[in-house]
Amino acid sequence: MLRSVFGKVIHDQWRIVLGWAAFAGIWPAMYVALYPSIGAIGELQRMLEQFPPALREFFASSSLDLSSPEGFLNMELFTFVAPLLVLAYTVVVCGGATAGEEERGTLDLLLANPIPRWRVVVEKSAAFVIGTIVIGVGMWVGAAVGAAAVGVDLDLGLVGQAIVSSLLLGFALGGLALALGALTGRRWLAAGVSLMVAIAGFFLNGLGALVDWLEPWRPISPFYHYISNDPLTNGLDPGNVLVLVAWAVVGGVIAVVAFERRDLAR
């Protein structure tokens, strides 16, 4: 395993990633399993229908249709919990990709080896992509197991697409954290600012649905591209996918360029 920087990340993280994937899988399993036993679902549905449409938009861009398990998952899981489970991983590991080693002081030793700096960024990022996918698989398996256990008829293909959308959101903000870490050499600054951008983006997208003058700004929020198309109902939208991938790629490129050029702290 310890054959490359990529392998070293896998070596260091596989337990944490598997643990996090299992934890992330509990949530969809729980929501799916609870769905049939929520007797008051009709009651809840009627209450939600009293909400102004704009407020319903805040929770998810879907029509908040609780009569299907997908609608219930959209509100309970994909509005907030799923992105948070993914972002907690990507933002923290990407923020620390180079900055963590820089702050701990292991970077000098690593780069005394004949490897180019860009490879450290690229190989670590590749390992983080694998880790993120494993977390996504954990969530999907959780949903599938939950559905099988209580016999709910859930479209697992669409659930998969919604999870992929949340992973792409994770990559987008991970790219930001990677770039900030490479630029500043400070891991918690990188992770913290990225998380704040995520939260600001969450509110911008949600409030943009309520407030007219915010509406045109929604596309600058990565959350808009994550959820506005309602992937759990409609599947992934290529345009939104492209925007999130672009966030990640631009972040990665900035990280490589910044890290190649900077004086490294000791």
């Binding site: 310890l2 490359s4 690593l110 080896n113 004949p114 490897i115």
Partner: peptide
């Protein structure tokens, strides 16, 4: 082992 691989 890690460094040996990085150094070839």
């Amino acid at each position: 082992t890690f460094f040996a691989h990085l150094r070839g």
